[in-house]
């Protein structure tokens, strides 16, 4: 089980879009290392042929009819928005393009 370094935590924070301060990084990195260490046991428990469980109960094929139903009004949709302009969500300038 690889260790988790302060740099790793900083990288993960970037992936997760959290601006961790230096103090937070100092605090968090060793805590995460301890937690990871304690859950390390898991990697040896299950054999290759054990199927993974992603859903607690084995349901399949739950579908909806293709029928349009009313949703929210624009007013409701925008009611929680930090900023609104022209009936749209106003967001700070976007760097980079769509994926």
């Amino acid at each position: 089980m690889p260790d988790i370094s302060r740099d790793d935590v900083a990288h993960l924070a970037t992936l997760a879009r959290i601006d961790l301060s230096d103090a937070e990084l100092d605090h968090l990195a060793p805590q995460l290392a301890v937690i990871l260490d304690s859950i390390a046991s898991i990697s040896e428990v299950a054999a290759e042929d054990v199927p993974p469980t992603s859903h607690a109960l084995p349901l399949t094929n739950v579908f909806r009819e293709d029928v349009a139903t009313p949703g929210l009004t624009a007013e409701q949709a925008l009611s929680g928005a930090p900023e609104v302009e022209e009936q749209r969500f106003s967001v700070p300038r976007i760097l980079g393009e769509e994926q």
Partner: peptide, 10 residues
């Protein structure tokens, strides 16, 4: 997108 001040999302 470049140089824009802010964006509006629909």
């Amino acid at each position: 997108i470049h140089g824009a001040d802010h964006s509006l999302v629909d």
